[in-house]
């Protein structure tokens, strides 16, 4: 009898540990966000989109990668169209980022990262000395050097503004520090960076020295997808908010998930589409905590605010 009791206790303990590692005991630490605005529809006119795949914001404007229209569209914070640019340079723009008064646009088809001024002047295209293979995300350091999520290259590359390689994190696989079609990268203001490890259905964190810190998403962060809190089903975009929280586009779950800088789950929110296809593909966060998302299936741009307590 005591033996049976011990086995039962051990089984319960192991199950609880497994469930905990799987996120089963996660609950919303914060209230979900509320959508306060949306605009857009399918098309090629100003204010229309054909596959929005990336989004970035400044204090006054919203920048959208309008992938199949091969352009960047810019809107004010009320969704009013302001300008578009890039049609002479871009082929398939993906996740956007803004830093140093520059807009960085990885081009999935041209294998470069285009650099524009905020007002839309074309500045340069950064190529890697070891060529990129479908880059989908880029994040700039203060010196203008870039971390690039090189999706088909199965790597993250740190390149100078001249394209010289400073560091590479590479290797296809599910173990720590390996990737499975990384789709985006975000530099943390605290130092270090996060990688949206797309088809591994997880986030990987690295410190300022480029050393692996942790991974999260599903059981042990080992490429097991699912709909539970803290799990993912194809990670397509990542950004860091003003308080250091990490926002992740969880494409096949039609949601954005928010975590602490250490990967603790906080909340999630998003829309499902009435049409076939998935929605929340890209995410950006304002200085005031407002979240902006690109909804792929509906060709929408969405604005989200934290629910008031």
């Amino acid at each position: 009898m005591p033996m049976r009791k011990t086995i039962t206790v051990a089984t319960v303990a192991i199950s609880a540990l497994l469930l905990q590692s799987c996120g089963a005991f996660n609950w919303n630490q914060e209230a979900p966000y509320t959508q306060v605005m949306a605009w857009g529809e399918k098309g090629d006119q100003p204010g229309q989109f054909n596959d929005p795949t990336g989004i970035a914001v400044t204090a006054t404007e919203v920048f959208v990668a309008d992938a199949r229209n091969s352009r960047i569209q810019v809107f004010d914070k009320n969704g009013n169209f302001r300008r578009s640019f890039g049609q002479d340079q871009l082929e398939r723009p993906m996740n956007l980022s803004i830093a140093n008064e520059r807009l960085y646009v990885p081009d999935y088809f041209k294998d470069v990262v285009h650099v524009f001024s905020i007002d839309g002047r074309y500045l340069t295209a950064i190529e890697s000395e070891d060529p990129f293979n479908s880059p989908a995300g880029a994040s700039a350091f203060a010196d203008g050097s870039l971390l690039v999520a090189d999706t088909y290259g199965q790597r993250v590359v740190h390149v100078s503004t001249e394209g010289e390689i400073r560091n590479i994190w590479s290797g296809k696989g599910i173990w720590s520090g390996e990737f499975n079609y990384p789709t985006d990268v975000a530099i943390s203001p605290k130092g270090g960076f996060y990688v949206a490890d797309g088809y591994n259905d997880r986030v990987q964190q690295f410190n300022a020295n480029g050393e692996y810190v942790r991974k999260w998403g599903g059981p042990f962060g080992l490429n097991i997808y699912g709909p539970f809190k803290g799990w993912f089903a194809t990670v397509t975009s990542i950004t860091v908010g003003p308080e250091g929280n990490v926002f992740v586009a969880d494409f096949y779950n039609d949601r954005i998930q928010k975590f602490t800088s250490d990967g603790i789950y906080l909340t999630s929110f998003g829309n499902s589409s009435g049409k076939p296809g998935q929605t929340e593909i890209a995410v950006a966060v304002d200085g005031d905590g407002t979240v902006w998302t690109a909804n792929f299936a509906d060709n929408h741009i969405e604005k989200w605010r934290p629910k008031k307590k």
């Binding site: 596959d51 795949t53 992938a67 398939r92 999935y108 088809f109 479908s134 989908a136 999706t151 088909y152 079609y181 789709t183 797309g198 088809y199 194809t234 397509t236 494409f251 096949y252 998935q278 593909i281 792929f296």
Partner: peptide
């Protein structure tokens, strides 16, 4: 095929 990243990857190769 899981997401636009797949579709674009194929499109790039077929092009």
């Amino acid at each position: 095929l899981a997401c636009p990243y797949c579709a674009y990857g194929i499109e790039k190769k077929l092009n």
